[in-house]
Amino acid sequence: MIRINCPICGLRSETEFTYGEDASVTRPAMDESAAQPWLDYVFNRDNPRGWHREYWHHAQGCRQWLVLERNTLTHEIGTCRLAREDAA
C-alpha cells in the first residue's frame, strides 16, 4: 500500500488519489511550430526504472494536484509538493 504525504491533508492511503501522469515532461510554448517538442511532450517518455516525478490528484481529499517523487522499482515515496508550488 502506498501512502502519500499530502501537504494539505497529511499522510493518506493511495486509494484517495488518482494517478495523473509523468510530471517530468515540459509542455512546449503554444507558438512552438516544430513537431519534435510536441511529440516528445505528448508521446515520448523517460519511463525510468527508479526515481520518477509524477502527478497525483488527491481526488477524495483536498482535490489538489500534487507532484510526487516515487521510486518505480521499490515504490518508496520521496518528496510530495503541491503542483502549483512545484511549478514556481
Binding site: I2, T18, Y19, N47, R49, E54, R70, T72, L73, H75
Partner: peptide, 10 residues
C-alpha cells in the same frame, strides 16, 4: 495505474 517495475502490485 501508476508506473511500476516492481513485479508486485498493491
Amino acid at each position: 495505474m501508476y508506473n511500476s517495475y516492481a513485479q508486485r502490485g498493491g
